[in-house]
Computed example of a mutant assay.
Amino acid sequence: MLDLIKPIYPLFFKLLQQEPESAHRRLLQILTQVDHNRDRHWGNWLEQELTQSFSYEDSRLEQKLWGINFTNPLGLAPGFDKDGVAARMWQSFGFGFAELGAVTLHPQPGNQPPRMFRLPLDKAALNRMGANNQGAQVIASRLAEVNPSIPIGINLCKSKITPLENAAQDYLESFRYFKNCADYFVVNVSSPNTPGLRSLQGEEQLEGIIETLQQENQGQHPILVKISPDLDWNAIASIIALATKHQLAGLVATNTTTEKTGLKTKKLNGNPLLEEAGGISGEPLKERSTAIIRFIWQQTQGKLPIIGVGGIFTPEDAWSKITAGASLLQVYTGWIYQGPWMVKTILQGLVGRLEATGLTHLSEAIGQENL
C-alpha cells in the first residue's frame, strides 16, 4: 500500500496548501469512518494495510516511563486530533503514543478562520486555531468508549471564557473527566492563541494550578507542564524548580513560537507575516526547542523526563533531541510535510544510530551529549 500512497502524496499536500483546515478535517473524517468500520472487511483490511505500511517495531526502542509502556518514543502532538475522533487509529500509523487536545472544560469554536496556514518555504506552519474543541465531557466520553491500544495523553487548556483567576478550577474540572480514561496529562499554559494564557507560566499562577491538580491526582497519573519556547532562561529555571518541588512527571518542550523574524515567508493571507497572529511550528522551532531540552536536562541532571517537540522531520532531528535529553518525542508539522511514512523512517533511523554508536537501547542515548 505504501507504494500506492506515496506517488499521490504531493497532490494531497497541494490540497493541504490550498485548504489546510478543511483537508485536515476531511482526513479525520476518513479515519473516523475506518475506525467505525474496523469490524467490516474493508475497514479491517485498510487498518491492517496502514499498520503494515507505516509501523516499525524494535525492542531497543521500547521504554517504560511513569509506569506506562511505550513501544516507541514517537508520538502524535496535540492539535491534530483535538476531539479524539481518531484516537484508536494512531497506532496504525506507527505512533508509540498520541496526545489529544488541547481540551478545555467548556466547548469552544476557536478563532475565526482562516486560522491554519502552511509556510512551505520555511517547512513550517502557522496556526491560530484558538483551542477549538467539543469540551472535556464529550471528549472524555468518546475516549472511554474506544479504549486505544497505545498510551493516550490529554493536553489540558484553560477555557477562553474562564477568567485567569479561576484557571486552576477550570483545569481541575477538565482533569476530573479524564481521570479514568487517559494515561498522562499535560498542563498547557503556553499556547499563544488563548488570550492571557501564557501569563499562567508565571510562578505564582502556575504553582496554584499545579497544587490544585496534584492534590486531586494523589500520584495516580503523570502530570507534565508544556512550556513556551519564547521564555527566557530564568523563567524556564523557575518552572523547572516548580516541577521539582511539586513532583511533576516531566516537562514538554516546547509549544509554538510567536517569533516570526528571519523567515523566508514574508507575506501571508495578503498581509506581512509579522502582522499575522498565531504560533509558528516546524523547522524554525527546531534549534530553540532542542536548546531548551538540553537546558532542562542539565538543570535536573536528567531526573525530570522531557517530551521533545518542535521541528522534527528526520532521524537526525529526532536523535538530536534525544541526545539533548528528551525521553519521548512528538511530531505534527513534520508529519504533514514528510508524509505518513515519516514515523517508520525516523524509528528505523534511530535504531541505525544506536547501532552506529554502539548503544544497545534508546535509554542509553537520552542526554548522552551532556555526559
Rank of each mutant, 00 (worst) to 15 (best):
residue 216 E to N: 11
residue 210 I to K: 10
residue 119 L to D: 06
residue 27 L to Q: 06
residue 251 L to Q: 02
residue 226 K to S: 02
residue 186 V to F: 00
residue 224 L to V: 12
residue 242 L to N: 12
residue 21 E to H: 04
residue 43 G to W: 05
residue 326 A to Y: 04
residue 339 G to V: 10
residue 347 L to Y: 13
residue 30 I to S: 09
residue 149 S to E: 13
residue 94 G to W: 13
residue 335 W to D: 00
residue 192 P to F: 13
residue 144 A to V: 02
residue 281 S to I: 00
residue 57 E to G: 05
residue 369 E to Y: 08
residue 288 R to I: 01
residue 344 K to T: 06
residue 120 P to N: 09
residue 308 G to N: 04
residue 66 W to N: 07
residue 55 S to H: 09
residue 39 D to L: 13
residue 247 Q to W: 04
residue 36 H to I: 01
residue 183 D to H: 15
residue 191 S to F: 00
residue 225 V to Y: 03
residue 64 K to L: 04
residue 359 L to S: 08
residue 121 L to Y: 03
residue 134 Q to G: 10
residue 260 K to A: 04
residue 204 E to A: 15
residue 51 T to C: 06
residue 243 A to W: 01
residue 218 Q to S: 12
residue 241 A to G: 11
residue 125 A to F: 05
residue 16 L to E: 13
residue 295 F to K: 13
residue 219 G to S: 07
residue 130 G to N: 02
residue 222 P to T: 11
residue 40 R to H: 14
residue 197 L to G: 12
residue 43 G to K: 06
residue 54 F to T: 06
residue 360 T to K: 11
residue 273 L to K: 10
residue 107 P to E: 07
residue 109 P to E: 12
residue 185 F to Q: 03
residue 337 Y to C: 02
residue 101 G to P: 05
residue 23 A to C: 15
residue 2 L to H: 15
residue 171 Y to E: 13
residue 63 Q to Y: 05
residue 59 S to C: 03
residue 343 V to F: 13
residue 155 N to G: 07
residue 86 A to L: 06
residue 334 G to E: 03
residue 232 D to F: 03
residue 83 D to T: 05
residue 114 P to D: 04
residue 175 F to T: 12
residue 298 Q to S: 07
